[in-house]
Design a protein around this nucleic acid. Sequence first.
RNA 1: GCCGCGUUCGUCUAGUGGCCUAGGACAUCGGGCUUUCAUCCCGAAAAUCACGGGUUCGACUCCCGUACGCGGUACCA
Length: 491
Amino acid sequence: MKNVRVRIAPSPTGYPHIGTIYQAMFDFVFAKKYGGKFIVRIEDTDRNRFVEKAEEIIFNSLDWFGLKSDENPKIGGPYAPYRQSERLDIYKKYAFELVEKGHAYYCFCTKERLEKMRGDQETKKLPPMYDKTCLNLNKDQVEENLKNNIPYVIRMKVPENRKVVVLDTLAGEIGFNSSQIDHQVILKSDGFPTYHLAVVVDDYLMKVTHVFRGKEWLPSTPKHILLYEFLGWEDSIPTFIHLPVILNADGKGKLSKRLKTASVDYYKNMGFLPEAILNYLANIVWNHPEGKEIYPLMDLGLAFHEDPFRVDVTSSGPRFDLTKLEWMNGEYLRKMDDESLSKRLMEFLGSKYEGEVVKKLVPLTKERIKKFADFIPLTSFIFEEPKYDMEVLNKVKIESPKEILEEVIKTLDSLGKPWKVDAFEKTFRQLAEKLEIKVGDFFQLFRFAISGKLVTPPLFESIQILGEKETIDRIKKLVVISNRIGGETNG
RNA sequence: GCCGCGUUCGUCUAGUGGCCUAGGACAUCGGGCUUUCAUCCCGAAAAUCACGGGUUCGACUCCCGUACGCGGUACCA
């Protein structure tokens, strides 16, 4: 495949949606596989939803995922500018060209009138569409209105009763009756284009060859086809690949921006690995030919076939299942060597954590966390004093914990320093035997004494990190607390 | 309402007319390992292939219809 050019066109309205990343992933892999270019174009045509810092956040996110683009507003490229707000003259030129050719017209209808019209259509159970009032305006009326500075939009004029065929790589040929296509606004009254005009113009001018986008765009594709025809660009219509829409976990509706799990910052904050997220995203719509679940990003390229062009993705919309993502992320974590894992974990935790301690904890925790955020509660007892909850202590099946702990302290004091894991374990197994308590229960008490918890990373290794003094201090402290409440902890 | 797309275990999927008494993964449950929790290993349960008609010697696979779901129906993208 030659001169492959793909693009992603996010709107700067906030944190990027996980669906944007999903789409970008396909673009990126596709471009890489065929030696093409991956373009990022900023679609900032909606001034109402525009968010100042969003563009920066979008680029940070794409960087985080390693989805590097070849042309974008920051680095430029042969078809700059790549921000639609900087291309207004271009869209206007084509909008007016369409008017001249008779494929578009001025519309002076007010918002209020349009709203009322739609309301009426709804009560009459008619499809809500523009009623073409301004289509019948004659030249003089238009001139008059323009002279009087009446705000206008430009709408595309859709021919009656024509079959418009959309060729989608996944769904095949889909026919639409043009009578059901609305006379869509292509240029808004603020001089900005709508998506429909902007995509067509930009994709044409930027020589985009393949359009990967969500299936929610399928119903508006005939509008775009028509626009290509009106502009005389029918030979340059890109190949469409309408990807299945990712649904909410409950399957009711598409992954909505309202949900925290739809936004990439959620995954960043929870400490997911970008490569695991990408793997998951690929996995829900595509299956590896070798049946693998875990595979590198570029394996997704196996989904693309030439002659005839085909993309192997599922047709129905998958639900976004956080549980499986967590499993997958855990797999990635465990596959990593301790050093790189420490490095990444430190990046996540920030400078308030001591690097050396974190490094020591990594081998003890890597099999116990699914994402970096899990590390914090698991190891909090290392970094801060434990809080002892006697309710929790009561779950340990030991009659008189205070006496046992005193024995532990005695043994600890007599133990040669520095404490060694092997000798340590042996000593305390013997002690448990001597005291006639189950080893498991005994260690649970010990665990509680140093951490205030019943679930921790391996006991002796944790103690080693904690240090001799701190360990003894904590046990002593628990003894004191037990004393204060009468030592009757096991009721 | 109208238009479009879809429908295989709870979830993601394999399956392109006989290999399917439907395979894998996650989740669930049971067992092993084990100082807890995990990891790891073994095993179980889980889909009348949405339903109804065709076509065919034979259908999860092809065709039609119905139901359900999703998407679209903006001077949002």
